[in-house]
Simulated assay, not measured.
Amino acid sequence: MKTLGIILIVVGILMFVFTNINFTTEKKVVDLGPVEINKKEDKSIAWPVWAGGVAVIAGVVLIIADKRKAS
């Protein structure tokens, strides 16, 4: 439980710092033998800032629950 809590805290902090991920995909449009036409598309994955806060809080709760269970 402690390890999962630490992972959630780290992921939550990263979600605060990086609010989205941008990447480029390449899609084949036309393929006529030796001639090939490709299209590059920019894509983005975004998440709300509050999701990072929820992850941090859940991690802290897991660590506290683990400490109470151990004592």
Results as ranks from 00 to 15, higher is better:
I45H: 00
M15C: 02
V30E: 13
T3I: 13
A58D: 02
F16G: 06
P48Q: 08
I57E: 02
M15T: 02
A70R: 04
I37H: 03
G33Q: 13
L62I: 03
K67H: 05
P48N: 13
G59R: 00
N22E: 15
T24D: 12
L8G: 05
L8R: 05
G12P: 02
V49W: 06
T25A: 09
W47M: 02
E26A: 09
L4N: 14
G59M: 04
F18M: 07
K43S: 10
T3M: 01
L8H: 06
G52V: 00
K43N: 15
M1Y: 09
V35H: 08
G52P: 04
G12N: 04
D66E: 15
A65E: 11
I37C: 01
K27A: 07
V61K: 00
G12F: 02
K67I: 06
I21T: 04
L8C: 07
K67S: 07
K69P: 08
F23K: 00
K67W: 06
G33L: 09
I7L: 12
V61L: 09
F23G: 06
R68F: 13
A55E: 08
E36H: 11
F18S: 08
I63E: 01
D42I: 15
F16M: 05
A46Q: 09
N20H: 12
V17C: 08
I9R: 02
W50R: 01
L14G: 14
V61E: 02
D31H: 07
V54M: 13
D42E: 15
M1H: 08
T19R: 03
A65F: 04
V30Y: 07
I21A: 05
V17Y: 13
V54E: 11
T19I: 04
D66Y: 12
K39V: 12
L62K: 06
A51V: 09
D42K: 12
I57R: 00
T24N: 11
A70G: 10
G53M: 06
A55M: 10
T25V: 15
N22Q: 14
V29P: 02
A46F: 02
K39R: 05
K27M: 12
K39G: 11
I6R: 12
V60G: 01
A46V: 07
L8V: 04
V17G: 05
V60F: 06
K67C: 03
G52C: 00
T24I: 07
K28C: 13
T19F: 01
F18N: 09
R68A: 13
L32V: 03
K28L: 15
F23E: 11
I6S: 10
V17M: 12
I64S: 05
F16H: 13
G59V: 04
V30D: 12
V35E: 12
V56N: 01
T25S: 09
